[in-house]
Each structure stands twice: as C-alpha cells, then as structure tokens.
Simulated assay, not measured.
Amino acid sequence: MKKYFAALSTTALICVAPHALAASNTPLKVTGFITPAACDINLSRGGLVDIGKKSVNDLHPTSNTLVDTTKIQLTMACSETMPFMLNPIDHRPNTAAGAGDYFGVGLTPDNEKLGFFDIAITASTADTTPVQAIGSSDGGATWAKQDRIKLGNQSSVAATSDHATRIEVKDLTMDLEIKTYIAGTDTLTIDNEIPIDGLATIEVWYK
C-alpha cells in the first residue's frame, strides 16, 4: 500500500488587463492552502495478505466461498491534529465478483471475475480514545456509521456518541479484517492454477 500526501493549490490572482479597444475585463482567482502538516500511514504485515493455495474442491459450486480472513492493523501518525479522510483505490478495477463496493482479485484467463476482497473495520482508536468508524459517499459532505472501507466511499472516525460528525485526529489505529472470497465454480473456468491478484491503495486526504 503506498502513502499519499495531499497538497492544495497556492493562491494567485490573474486579471485580464484592459486593451485599448476593450470595454471590460474580468478577474480569474485561484485559491487554496499549502499545509505544513503531514501524516504517515502504514499497514502491518507490509500490507500483504497471502492466503496460499486453495483447491477448487473447497469452493462452492454456485455461490461465493470465503477462503481467508486475515487481521491487519492500519496506523496513521500525523504531525499535528487535523481532519482527514481515507480514500481507497482498487488497482484491479471492474474485476470484483458481486457488489460494487468490494475490491477485485483479478480475472481468469477466460476473463471471468475470480472473486473479491472486503475490508472490515473491527475497532478504531484515535489519540488513545475508542472512536467509531464512519463513511461518506459524497466526498465528506455528510457522514454515517460505516464499519468497512468501501470502494467509492471515504472513511474517517467520529466520537462514539455522534456518528455524523468527523473529528480531528493526530494518531489513529484501525483494526482491519481482510476477507477474501472466490466466486462460485459455475462461473469460473479453472483448467490450470490461477493467481489471486488483489491490489488496493489507501490514500489520506487532508480536508
């Protein structure tokens, strides 16, 4: 999982100077901030979930099979207390079998969707205090309780008593469960060994 450090635009003002023959002009203003703060985000186990080899005989013929559950921990250390959002990116887009907010694990040689993985948040602590994981589907305009890191949504944390209000954090710990599923064998062509190949990045947005 790579680390992402957000930078906002500088402030400038560009005005269209009046020409000798022009009767009017209009300003163009670009605004924003450069923040001196930054966060370092890491995943335990090096961000690697290795489920080993699974036999096709262990897979359900007509429904998804849970083949592995691995616990890892996400930690974030910031230089100062600040608001943040975690934004996931799926590097195997459009390969997840099932719901659209899961992460893909690649395709078979016949371009069949092999399965997906889900990222559950089982516990969160901010600055030594237990907090509630929350999510937003509109870029942070509104928030609600969300115990998963969902593709297409942003994640953050709130006080356990108020799930709609994001709080500022300096140090964050999230306990995660990565659950990997393989699609029903009736949708797959498995004539040879097929690699399970999921890859996602979690960005930190400072806003």
Rank of each mutant, 00 (worst) to 15 (best):
E177N: 10
I178E: 04
I134A: 01
G152Q: 10
T187R: 15
A141V: 15
I196R: 06
T142D: 08
D162A: 10
S124K: 00
Y181C: 03
S136V: 05
A183R: 14
I182R: 04
A123Q: 11
Q132R: 13
M174P: 00
T187N: 10
S124R: 01
D147K: 10
A133N: 11
T187P: 07
P195L: 08
E193F: 15
S155Y: 08
A164T: 15
A141C: 05
A126L: 02
E177L: 07
S137T: 15
T165H: 09
I190E: 03
E177H: 08
T129D: 07
A183I: 12
K179H: 09
T142F: 07
P130A: 04
Q146G: 09
E177T: 08
S155F: 03
A159K: 13
V169H: 00
A158R: 01
D147S: 15
D138Y: 07
D127A: 01
A158P: 05
W143F: 12
T165R: 10
A159V: 10
D138R: 09
I182K: 03
S137L: 11
K150L: 14
I190L: 15
Q154T: 14
I190C: 05
A141Q: 14
T129G: 00
P130W: 01
A164P: 00
G152R: 14
P195Y: 12
S124T: 07
R148L: 13
D186G: 11
V169I: 12
P130V: 00
Y181S: 13
I194M: 12
G152K: 12
P195A: 11
S161P: 01
V131G: 01
T187K: 15
S136A: 02
A159S: 13
V157P: 00
L176P: 02
I196G: 06
A183M: 08
E177K: 12
A158C: 04
D171A: 03
E168T: 14
K150W: 11
A183E: 14
Y181A: 03
A144M: 11
T160W: 01
V157K: 00
